Amino acid sequence: MFGAICSGQPVQLATEVDNLKYTIEFKELPSSISFITIFMLPNIQFDLNYTALIYFKAGPDPEFKLLGGLGIEKQSAIYRINQKPVNRNDGLSSSSNNNMVDDIDMDTDNTGATQEVIIGISIETNQAAEFILQQSKLNNNNNNAVNKTKLLTSYANNSVNANSNTILQNQQLANKIIENCYNYLSSFDDGTGKVPIAKFNEWWKKFMIKLKNNPKLLSSSDSDLL
């Protein structure tokens, strides 16, 4: 009832393993293969009230992943089975039912090795198939949302930590400058807690000259700025 083909490989026909359940096996499929075409065989009787859900499993991965569905209105599809960039000018992006690409990125190796690939096909009622397809899309969207949330949370935490570090550094720098200024001016205290403003101007002038001569002065561990 179903067949599959990919570049450089002979056509593989589906084997019925249970009622309305089929598998197609590629024992040693090169990992460099980018696309695989699943299609209904010609002149078969397929109930328009049913959809054939297409699943995919590669290598030692025990989990089948849902790729899409076939039916009377869409009797074949080309599925992407690795992360190689898609050339949109290669004719594979046609919107016709018989030449349709479902861009599903699967985690396959692209090192030139071979692996076993199994296509699972389950015939379901249209209502059940639509529900399963929608759930799959929802799960994918949720996973993407979770990943984005984690990324934003990480970014926010890093920003908070960076801001906290900046605030702490600014506080330490301010304390360092004020302490140095206080120590300098206190030596000119007239006994009543008063210091001539000229002495502050003198400190400021010396401080700016030393800072100009040594741009790393404020980052120095030396508490004596003058």
Rank of each mutant, 00 (worst) to 15 (best):
M1P: 13
F2L: 11
G3Q: 01
G3H: 09
I5F: 14
I5H: 15
C6D: 13
P10K: 04
P10W: 11
Q12L: 04
A14W: 00
D18A: 09
D18H: 06
D18I: 10
L20V: 06
T23C: 06
E28A: 15
S31R: 03
S34Y: 03
F35K: 02
F35E: 05
F35S: 07
I36Q: 00
T37K: 13
I38F: 05
F39L: 11
F39T: 05
M40C: 13
F46A: 12
N49H: 00
A52S: 07
L53P: 01
A58V: 04
G59V: 09
D61S: 05
K65M: 10
L67V: 04
G69M: 03
G69W: 06
G69C: 00
L70R: 01
Q75W: 07
S76P: 08
A77F: 13
A77H: 10
Y79N: 10
R80H: 11
N82A: 04
N82E: 00
N82K: 08
Q83F: 14
K84S: 14
P85D: 09
R88P: 12
D90H: 00
G91I: 02
G91S: 00
G91D: 05
S95I: 13
S95C: 10
D102W: 05
I104N: 12
D105K: 11
M106V: 11
D109C: 14
N110R: 05
T111I: 11
T114Q: 00
Q115W: 14
E116Y: 06
V117N: 07
I118C: 10
I119R: 09
G120T: 02
G120K: 05
I121R: 09
S122Q: 14
S122M: 11
Q127V: 14
A128C: 06
A129F: 01
F131G: 11
F131H: 15
I132C: 06
I132A: 00
Q134P: 07
S136E: 02
K137N: 02
K137Q: 12
N139W: 10
N139V: 10
N141L: 15
N143L: 15
N144D: 15
K148N: 14
K148L: 15
T149H: 15
L151A: 13
L152Q: 11
N157E: 06
N161R: 03
T166Q: 12
I167P: 07
L168F: 08
N170R: 04
N170Y: 01
Q171K: 09
L173R: 04
L173G: 08
L173Q: 09
K176T: 06
I178P: 01
E179M: 05
L185F: 07
L185R: 06
S186T: 12
S186I: 06
F188N: 10
D190Q: 05
G191W: 06
G191H: 09
V195C: 07
I197W: 08
A198M: 07
F200R: 03
K205C: 05
L211M: 01
K212C: 10
P215T: 05
P215V: 03
L217C: 07
L218Y: 13
L218H: 08
L218C: 10
S219H: 11
S220P: 03
S220G: 01
S220Q: 00
S223N: 10
D224C: 09
L225Y: 09
L225M: 02
L226Q: 10
